[in-house]
Each structure stands twice: as structure tokens, then as C-alpha cells.
Amino acid sequence: MTILGAAAEPSCYSRLVNDWICPAYVTDRQQEIVDATVQHVGITVVSVVLGLLIAFPLALLARRLPRLEATILAITTGIYTVPSLALFPLLVPFTGLSATTVVIGLALYALTILVRSLLEGLRSVPDDVRESATGLGYGRGALLMKIELPLALPVVMAGLRVATVSTVALTTVGSLVAYGGLGNLIKDGVLTNFRAELFTASLLCVVLAFVLDALLVLAQRLLTPWTRGVRA
């Protein structure tokens, strides 16, 4: 019999009760939950941003050299095929048991989705728009930054949303190397048969995914005011 179980008023997360939903757990372990959530958001955001930073030049390269496109797509698809629980261990010899391992692994997954959506987005820019811009005297750089990227934004943002939502979910697997954000709580919940911890952390993961997705939708609306009237 544990001390918790012997208490006069067993709380809903004591061994005896072990409720799935337990507000007392959330208030008592607030700091732990906040820390895990902060780590989770941090790992997710850094991974997606890193993925985007690598995906951008790769997409431009693939577009400039069509012969490279198939190779780049094949390699990124290959990486995507490797399960996260296998990818993290394969990175450990290089980066150790650190958050870097998780971030690099997740960035590689995000990269796959982002390269494709960047290519798809740039391809969706109508040729006549590109020609008009060239006719107006836009150079290659200005054409890309001022015409092509803004027009590609809806498709790119769609990819960014997919990448972000899946990264939030995959971050939990990082608990293998002890950097899994809310995944650490899930793992602990399984090991100690702690239902409130497990359920709260799982729920927070899903909520986090939807919140980040909503933020990206909002950002997209602000960045592409011209699509608002059309979509309705």
C-alpha cells in the first residue's frame, strides 16, 4: 500500500483511484506539465524551421536542375520511409542522447513534405504571370521573392501545416532519448500505469497540434489578403 493510497482523502490520481481525467493532477503537477509542453513546442518549432531552411534551397535546386529533382525526391521519400523510432537511434552515434538528435530527425521528416509543397507551389505560378513580371524588368531574385513566392504561398502553407501537425505528433517518440516533450510524460505514464498523466499529456499533444495549425491558418490569411475574397 503506498502512502498516497493510505491518505485520508485519496486524490483522483492516487494508485487506488487512478482516474483518466483528473484536475487535481493538472494543478499539483503544473510545473512538470508546463515544462514538458514548452520542450514540446520548442522541439517542434525548431525542427520545422530547420526543415524549411533546408527545404528551400533544395526546392530551388530541384527546380533549376530538373535532372536533380527525381534524385532529391527519391532521397527525401526514402528518409520519410524510415520509422521515427529507427531514425533517432541511427542519429545517436553522431549527436548523442540530446535534443539535437530529435530535432534533426524531425527536421528530416518535415523536409520531405516541405520540398514537395515548395516545388508544387512554385509550379502553380501561372507562366503568363512570370512572363509579365520578366517583361516589367524583374530579375531572377526579385521575381522569386516578390512574385513567385507570394503566389506559391497557399500551397507552401498547406505543406507547412501538414509538416507542423505531424511534427507535433512525432515529437513524442523523442522520449526514446528522453527529449520527447509531452512524450516523456506519456512514456512515464505507461511505465508507472499513471492514467491521468498519460491522458493529460496525450490530450495536450492533440490540442497543441490544432493550436499550431490554427496559428498557421491565421498567418496565411494575414500574408495572402488577396485570396480572401475568392475563397469566401
Binding site: 501537425v165 507535433v168 505528433a169 512525432l170 513524442t172 517518440v173 522520449s175 512524450g183 506519456i186 512514456k187 505514464g189 505507461v190 498519460l198 499529456a201 496525450s202 499533444c205 492533440v206 497540434a209 490544432f210 495549425d213
Partner: peptide, 9 residues
């Protein structure tokens, strides 16, 4: 959006 790990757990 649903972590496979969470559902399995």
C-alpha cells in the same frame, strides 16, 4: 494530429 505513441499508450 494524433500521436501514434499516445494512442498505443
Amino acid at each position: 494530429a494524433i500521436p501514434t505513441f499516445a494512442l498505443l499508450a
